[in-house]
Write a protein that binds this DNA or RNA. Sequence first.
RNA 1: GCCGCCGUGGCUCAGCUGGUAGAGCGGGUGACUCGUAAUCACCAGGUCCCGGGUUCAAAUCCCGGCGGCGGCUCCA
Length: 618
Amino acid sequence: MKLLLIHADKMKYEVKKKTKVAEDFDGKGYEMNEVLVAFVSVEKGDNEEVAEKAVEEILDVAKKVKAERIMLYPYAHLSSNLSDPETAVRLLKYMENLIKEEYEVHRAPFGYYKSFEISCKGHPLSELSREIRGEEEEVTKALKDEEKAVSYWYILTEDKKLVEVDKFDFTNYENLRKFVKYEMEKRRAVDKIPPHVELMKRLELADYEEASDSGHLKYYPKGRLIKSLIESFVTEKCIEFGAMEVETPIMYDRAHPTLRKYLERFPARQYIIKGDKRDFFLRFAACFGQFLIAANGVIPYRALPLRMYELTRYSFRKEQRGELVGLRRLRAFTMPDMHTIVKDMEEAKREFFEQYKLSVEVLKELGIYPEDYEVAIRVTKDFFEENKDFIYSLVDILKKPILIEMWDRRFFYFVLKFEFNFVDALDKASALSTVQIDVENAERYGIHYYDEKGEKKTPLILHCSASGAVERVMYALLEKAHMEIEKGKLPMLPVWLSPTQVRVIPVSERHLDKALEIAEVLKRNRVRVDVDDREETVSKKIRDASTEWIPYIAVIGDKELESGKLTVTVRSESTLKEQKRVEMSVEELVERIRKECEGKPFKPLPLPMLLSKRPSFR
RNA sequence: GCCGCCGUGGCUCAGCUGGUAGAGCGGGUGACUCGUAAUCACCAGGUCCCGGGUUCAAAUCCCGGCGGCGGCUCCA
């Protein structure tokens, strides 16, 4: 809603001619003295709440300028985004009634050509314009409902006993204690910058981009490489698991009836994009796109379980600013999102179990092990009671205690979900992998399958993010590396994710040719190798390679020229005090790296091979 | 969104109660041709986050904005 407020000695208007959208009015015009005239444009999206705020504003100004009366004057020309006439009239009348309680008020009729004369007083406050907007942060129904819901907390132990959280002995379960504390307490007193933020900058992986919205990062070549490798890996794992990869739009009509209802059931804030005729929201996951494909398809029972997958680059969630941190919590993030259509709850449980195992496997191969995260299961009380054996059986997969949050009623779209929560260097927890059993969207979207008798049936749907957000995987790896530093160890990334896997260091200029020759061999064998050809001392080059966490450093000097072997410093076997140096042939090094990277995607070095030709990005 | 702290060369930071900018790293040039965590010397880099205000004078004080961090709220 837009307002133009003018404090006038006199305001007089005359009705000239009706327009198509005119309301009923039989007067000819009106005149008021000592009046605050409020020219009003009612805009799309305005509602009673906005009208109330506008009235508050008008009354506030009226008091300040000591106006004796108020005139509301519909004036379309303040906005290019007008509401429909019905809403405008409704809200104008509403405002009139509110003002009437405190002031003498006249409302000029809506939808007429009118002439008017106004004499503005001309003091500093006599001309003001205001824009009134509703609550931008629409809190979804799901969020409000969650507040009202009651949670019961339990630990499901290794030997399948359900223990109330405060009766559980956390001795030897330090990480679980931290996680439970994080989940149940609201206070998190930490006064440090999360370690991964400094690391992502220092290693030239990623950085904040001030020219964008908060929570949108830029990735430098090394960061892009790592992200891209993780993306490829998770995608391959999901396809191998049986998913069909699809691609769907990133924005959707805000008014679409099905999507609208889903939005209300999802606990996240959206980015809104103004289109020419319609408003769009940016997707927060790939659900819509895939559900809309499924709703359109003809699905025989033989096609079930039917798995669809998309790597969302990006998913958008307009998290509150205070929540955004480095790679941990973003407003634009990349998420592997798989949906599985199953015929009934029995099949849903089987798939849930398998996807649980898939998630464990995916994280493990990414370098995040069961001891690095804690399992949470969120479940409605009803579902838990009816499926106790099934839920207890989940303990068998990881053989460690699980935090159970039981809701007295269902307010999201799912009855059961698990998450793997990574506990970071500052004892904060964030969810990585998750799978949910969705009991309402198949019906909402009109997704059906045909059973053996040819009858239309409504399936269930599983939502699965096998690794969780890719950025979050990077965050977890960096936080984990930091925790290694704290323990006095040398931090590193898994070899298959290390931007440079081998650095070749010539001792002096005359060793450069040999260094390049070796690098070429490594490169041909799908190893990311670079050569430090800068005019620096060997010590300096070693130091730089170490601060880049390079897994293998090969120094080439006279000794190597003679022996034909490499002296390789192996990071994973070294400590801060003592470097582990191994003599090996180029072939042996290639073989070692090949083994370490088996089954993982490979991409070439994203930077010039010669360090002397490399820019630095910060 | 609210509260608090912070924002100075590419990076990390110094600059007291106002007098108009400094170091280390990095970069360039030169010397050294070097064996496992920083070789030496010289040189070039600054709208002191942005916009207002106070003042003879603002990086410094005040107000507003933007961004970062932490807390609250919240958290696929």
